[in-house]
Simulated scan of single mutants.
Amino acid sequence: MSEERARYWRHPALPEVDLLRARFITHRFGRHVHESYNFSVIEQGVEEFEHRGTLLRAGPGSIVVVNPDTVHTGQAVHPEGWVYRGMYPSADLVAEVAAELGMPPGTPYFPETVLDDPEAARLLSAAHRAGEHGDALAASSLLRSALAGMLRRHADRAPPGDLAAAVPPAVHAAREILHARLVDPPSLEELAAAVGMRPFPLLRAFRAATGLPPHAYLNQIRVREARRLLDGGDPLAAVAAQAGFADQSHLTRHFKRSLGVPPGAYRRARAAAWARPVHYRT
């Protein structure tokens, strides 16, 4: 059985797109979110994941689509694991391509989570390979072609009502407090008092609005801050402390559960301005 492998990086020709190439066997993604879209082409095996309260599966040739800030998980169904190429374009980039196609303004929304679209899968995979091997023109051209096809065939003009609904003011205020206090977060009781609610009603409202309870949401924004600091070249120990993690092992555990790679490997891959061709064994 092949070993687990994962590489998470960004190609200079695709400045608004993160790339992940991975084979996972025992690794399980915890409940997490991305600020970007997630378009993953399954190459081998079957991935199982929870998405908006539903357990879904995606097999070879399928495209898994997760909209920004949507809670999801991920794990292998079979002992041999699954192999996939993940692309994480920013919401701004996808909206830009949508505008170029003449679609209405706003953040495009993909209602279907597992797609059977061979042409889109081919283009996404080709763009990913070009980004893996340093072909700037091909990577950027193929990506925009892939996004255009995905938007034309699969995107809604507007998010459904439940996603478009405004976040309750108390939840918005609670999120702002957590963003401001990564290192010294309040207790649930203190957080509730600060936004004028009782603890349990706030817990329910927060989970309903974000898909996560406050402590799990806090760890997600800590991971985002850790990514920002790692991209800036800060040492791991300093990153852990500044992002509010207890230590490096605490950072590593949550970082890998969200991104699939430990922070050290993430930083090494991102630090290479132009990744050299990688021989990926499966």
Rank of each mutant, 00 (worst) to 15 (best):
H72F: 00
L251V: 05
I25F: 01
R181Y: 10
A130H: 13
H250C: 10
G102L: 01
G74N: 08
R144W: 04
G232D: 11
R222V: 02
A275I: 00
L182W: 09
A99S: 09
G102C: 00
I25L: 14
G232Q: 14
A240Y: 01
P262R: 07
H254D: 14
P111H: 06
S140D: 14
G161N: 02
P160C: 07
A170S: 12
G233S: 08
D135R: 13
G149S: 04
R21G: 06
G232L: 13
L115E: 00
Y8V: 06
P169R: 03
H133E: 07
S90R: 02
A170E: 15
V223E: 07
V195I: 04
A180W: 02
H128A: 13
F29N: 06
I42N: 05
R23F: 11
P263Y: 05
E100C: 06
A6I: 13
A240D: 10
H215E: 15
V183W: 05
A146N: 04
H250P: 08
P108D: 02
G196I: 10
V65G: 00
V223C: 07
R198Y: 12
L182N: 01
A121W: 09
M103I: 00
A164K: 08
L147Q: 07
E48F: 05
G81P: 05
M197Y: 10
G106P: 02
L101E: 05
G161Y: 09
W82Q: 03
S140P: 04
L230N: 12
G131V: 05
I63Q: 02
A193N: 11
D92W: 07
A99F: 00
L259I: 14
I42H: 11
L143A: 08
M197F: 11
F200M: 12
S62C: 08
F39E: 01
P186C: 12
H34D: 14
L14R: 04
D117L: 07
V33T: 11
A158Y: 12
V65A: 09
S2M: 15
H128D: 13
L14W: 12
V46L: 02
H78R: 14
I221G: 00
I42A: 06
W9P: 00
P111E: 08
R57S: 03
A272I: 01
R152V: 14
A138D: 11
V64T: 03
A265V: 12
R23Y: 09
S62N: 10
E96C: 14
V171Y: 03
H128Q: 13
P213H: 05
V183D: 07
A238I: 09
G86Y: 09
K256H: 10
D156E: 14
S36T: 15
